[in-house]
Each structure stands twice: as C-alpha cells, then as structure tokens.
C-alpha cells in the first residue's frame, strides 16, 4: 500500500537549490514565469538568456537534464496546437520551405513554444528540487488560506495512494489484454474511475476515524517546532 519512495517528480539532492527555502523558490518561479510571458515574442535573444538561466540553475542543482526533458513531455499536446497555428491562422502569408504559412501564426507559434517550454522547464526544476511538504510550508508562509493548505496537504498525502491504486488497476486491465484506444472502451475506464473513487473514499473515512481518535475537532492544530 502506498509505499512510494517519495515523489516521482522529486529528484533527491542536497544542492543549494534543494536547500533554498521553498517560499523563495515559488516566488522566484512566479517572477521568472511572469517575466518570460511578458517578453514580446520578437525578442529572440531574451529567450536564449532565459534558457541559459534555467540551464545554470539546473546545473547547480545537479538534476540530470534528461530527467527534466523526459518529464516535459507533458507539453506535447500544446506543441501540436502550436505547430498547427501557422497553417490555420489568418493575415498576411509568407513562404517557409516552400509552404505558405501565416506570418502572425508563425510568430504566435514560436512565442507559444518558447514561453510554454521555458515555463514547463522552470516548474519542473522547482518540482525536482522541492519536496511536496516543503512546498506546502512555502505556500503556508506565503499566506495561502489555511483551508486551501489543508486540502492540499491531504491531497499530496493521498496522491501517491490514489495513483498507486490507479496504476495497479491499469496493470490488471492491461494484463487481460485491454488497451484504451477508442470510445467503446469508455465504460471500462468509467468503472475503473468509480472503483478508484470508492477505494479513495473508504480510505478517507478511515483517516477521518484515525484523526478523531487522536482528538481532532475539525481544526488542524498549530504545530510549532518544525524545522
């Protein structure tokens, strides 16, 4: 049961980047991303500089680049969207490699690609160097309302359990020759989701009982003396 070894996105290490306070890292990430997004798409050199900054931070953190690249695949659906833009956008057209494409679409695609990729890399660097519970403390220190922090704490705690459960159900499905390729398989996926929910709910209830048994009254106690 849920004997996960930490967070799949977290890359264990002891570098300066790992040890920096989480709330600082969140603020830096936010500032960096805002800067990247606010930069006009035509300032090509600026994007090169941003990439260099990320490369330096990643280098200092000693997280392998391949580790980050593998995880940035999450961006792929939007890459596809970006690649389509030059062909479907309107406005004056230009020729690239013999293909007629929209100029504004081309620029938009480039900007989307550059900004999206930089954002993804920056976030993944944070994820790789910060344990989820440190992130929670960081957000708490940044005055995220306590109800949200509480929900998030439980969510982070149970994500491993729920995804583990889901993975086992997937393995069980696929070892019986199932693969999700077309809508006819929806009922199977939907029933899996239902079963997943029941399991998660029952666990939630047991957790609730365990909390009540230790005097929980509906408010998380403030526990000081944490490192």
């Amino acid at each position: 049961m849920g004997a996960g070894h930490g967070h799949k996105l977290h890359y264990h290490g002891h570098s300066v980047v790992h040890r920096a306070p989480a709330h600082l890292k969140i603020l830096v990430l936010l500032g960096f991303t805002v800067l990247v997004v606010a930069t006009p798409g035509e300032w090509y050199a600026a994007f090169g500089a941003y990439l260099l900054v990320i490369a330096v931070v990643v280098g200092v953190s000693r997280v392998p680049a391949t580790y980050l690249l593998k995880r940035s695949l999450i961006e792929v659906p939007f890459l596809a969207f970006a690649l389509l833009l030059p062909f479907v956008a309107h406005g004056p057209r230009t020729d690239v490699l013999g293909l007629s494409v929209s100029e504004s679409g081309l620029l938009a695609a480039w900007a989307l690609l550059a900004k999206g990729t930089l954002g993804v890399l920056a976030s993944l660097t944070l994820a790789a160097t910060t344990e989820p519970h440190e992130l929670l403390h960081g957000l708490e220190r940044l005055r995220l309302p306590s109800q949200l922090v509480q929900i998030m704490a439980f969510m982070v705690r149970y994500l491993d359990v729920v995804t583990g459960e889901m993975q086992r159900m997937k393995v069980a499905r696929e070892s019986r020759g199932f693969s999700a390729r077309d809508p006819r398989q929806w009922p199977v996926l939907a029933r899996s989701a239902g079963a997943l929910f029941i399991r998660s709910y029952e666990r939630g209830e047991r957790v609730h009982l365990a909390m009540l048994s230790r005097g929980y009254t509906g408010r998380m106690p403030r526990i000081e003396g944490r490192p």
Binding site: Q147, Y158, L159, P183, Q185, W186, A193, S200, G204
Partner: peptide, 20 residues
Amino acid sequence: APMAGLVAAFVFATQMLNFP
C-alpha cells in the same frame, strides 16, 4: 478537510486518465 483532499487527489489522478 480529509474528504476534500481526497476528492482533490481523485480529480487530480483522473485528470491524468486520458480517454480517446
């Protein structure tokens, strides 16, 4: 709070469940 956390974890997990 625990239930809400679980619903969040569940939504999170199923958002990774892509269906064709």
